[in-house]
Amino acid sequence: MHHVVLDRWGCGLSPVHRRDPRAKMLAALIFLVALATSHQSYLAVSAVYFALLVTAIFAAGLPPAAVLRRAALVLPFSLVFAAMSVASGDTTRAISLVVKSYLSALVVLVLVSTTPLPQLLGGLERTAVPRFLLLVVQFLYRYLFVISEEAQHMRAAAAAKGGSMGRVISRRRHFGAAAGAVGVLFARSYARAEAIHLAMLARGFAGHFRPLAKSSFRKLDAAFLAGAVAAIVLLRAAIEAWT
């Protein structure tokens, strides 16, 4: 399952892992904007940025091949549109779609595999993002695997039932069975949410979550951010001045 891998990568202790999430997020955001807004010489910029990301992957001690492969999840979508661009005669656009979408996915992947999602959310807490939304994301992530496992059990159970009946069930009934399974999953998820709420109340929850961690943006984080931004901006500027 995807996010188990991310959890494992996120547990690292490299200097990149230890930076404040806000420093890493801001660096990644500036990377994305710099990439998205580069036009004429974007290929050279992309090549240099790719090198930057590979450096970051090594510095963070992540498995390079696995990370590069995972970022390729975006490629099927990009390739379809690239093919359509080629078909309508815009080859430049086709290459740009593939290169930019891949690099963007890669930088986000490097960010989340060096910063566990709860930390990222904690970093976002002091920004404009509504805290309520962040808490919902946090709970979604927490129970994603629990509910997915339940769905897998139900799928297996449905398959076993179909097998034991010893005949191929009609498509209509199969459709109905799937709807029933989703319905049951819905009801169980709902019941789980209520149980969680009850457990929260039992521990004195009075309507608002109080954060435990106090983040500290240290000099090293500022230095990291400054270095990353300088590299991103200056490299692009140098390339554009040169070409």
Binding site: L135, L140, I147, S148, E150, A151, A178, L185, F205, F209
Partner: peptide, 28 residues
């Protein structure tokens, strides 16, 4: 959605996880 307090957080989070999980169930 929040109203006056954050009590709905678990429901909304778990239902988000439900939508992810429900997508594993195939309809012919």
């Amino acid at each position: 959605a929040q109203g006056l307090e954050q009590s709905k957080v678990p429901l909304l989070g778990v239902m988000g996880a439900f939508v992810f999980a429900a997508q594993m169930i195939n309809f012919p």
